[in-house]
Simulated assay, not measured.
Amino acid sequence: MSHTAHIRSHRKPRRSASTIAMRAGVASGVLGTLAVAAAAGTANAAEPVTQTLELPVLTGDLAAQVAQSAQATQQAAANYQLHAERDAAAAAAAKEAKKDLAHAKAEATKKAEAARKAAAERATRAAERTTLSTTASSNNVTSASTSTSTSTATGSAAAVLAFVKAQVGDAYVSGGTGPNSWDCSGLVQTAFKQVGIDLPRVSQDQSTAGTQVSLDNLQPGDILYWGSAGSAYHVAVYVGDGMFVGAQNPSTGVAEKPLSYDPPTGAVRVL
């Protein structure tokens, strides 16, 4: 026996071919399993990655479409509101214009009617004056007035005359009853109120308020009228000396005139 036989050899024992083959197979199996697992893991990981890459693109497009749709809706709503406001403003303007037109028409009609009445009154007075001038000439009104020219007013008549003469120069206004503007019957009525006599308001009634007197027997304070008794269209107060005071028309106002200026139709005496 060798003196070194008891010493363990440091050399690795040789592996048998079968052992090596088995280990190679195991290694191959392990590697194959790892490869399959890796491939499966790669496949499983690839699908979420693909979805993650595509979803933002789809979500971005959808958001843009939603934003555009919302913007279009807001614009349509704004346009609708604008049209509604314009329509409301146009309707209000049309209503106001219609109201103004109706008012203007009413005013124009009122003025036209007033002008027509004034023209008719002037025409009537002109016709009456023409007729009365002829009548006055035939009845010698002038000489009649001369016969009363020396009469002197006293008492209540003097107060009436003083009042009407004090208003000479005031304006003529239809319906006026003083103190600075008058119509013919308003002046006569107020003059006689100074002496406690209440006369009717209008010319027609004043022409029958007292005793009818002849034009050739006039006295200061008598009421002169133009037109027929009961339907007279003008009155004034006789102040003596062939003169009268009356609220004539808008052109002359309250004035003192001779009987020949506008010969009256008749007269009444209330004093």
Rank of each mutant, 00 (worst) to 15 (best):
H3N: 11
R8M: 12
S9Y: 04
P13L: 14
A17I: 07
T19H: 06
I20D: 10
R23V: 14
A24I: 14
G25H: 00
V26R: 06
S28Q: 05
V30E: 02
G32I: 07
L34V: 14
A35D: 02
V36D: 02
A38F: 05
N44V: 13
E47G: 13
P48S: 08
T50Q: 14
L53Q: 11
L53E: 12
E54D: 11
P56W: 02
L58S: 06
A64L: 09
Q65A: 14
A67M: 07
Q68V: 12
S69L: 12
Q71M: 15
Q71H: 13
Q75R: 10
Q75T: 13
Y80M: 15
L82E: 09
A84D: 15
A84I: 08
R86F: 13
D87S: 10
D87H: 04
A90D: 10
A91N: 12
K99Y: 00
D100R: 01
K110S: 13
A112K: 01
A114T: 11
A118Q: 11
A118E: 13
R122Y: 02
T124W: 03
A127W: 03
E128I: 01
L132E: 13
A136Y: 08
A136I: 05
S137F: 06
S138K: 09
N139V: 03
N139F: 04
T142I: 14
S143N: 14
S147M: 05
S149G: 10
T150W: 04
T150N: 09
T154A: 13
T154E: 10
T154W: 08
G155D: 11
V160E: 05
A162P: 00
V164N: 03
A171E: 12
Y172W: 07
S174G: 07
D183C: 04
C184V: 12
S185C: 04
T190G: 05
T190N: 12
F192Q: 01
F192C: 09
I197V: 15
D198Y: 01
D198F: 00
R201N: 07
S203Y: 07
S207A: 03
T208R: 07
T208A: 08
T208M: 03
A209Q: 02
T211I: 06
Q212R: 13
S214A: 15
L215Y: 02
L218M: 08
I223H: 06
A232R: 03
V235E: 10
V235G: 11
A236E: 09
V239Q: 01
M243D: 15
V245W: 07
G246F: 03
Q248T: 08
P250I: 04
T252Y: 05
A255C: 01
E256V: 02
S260N: 05
D262A: 11
D262M: 12
P264M: 05
T265A: 04
T265P: 01
G266N: 04
V268P: 01
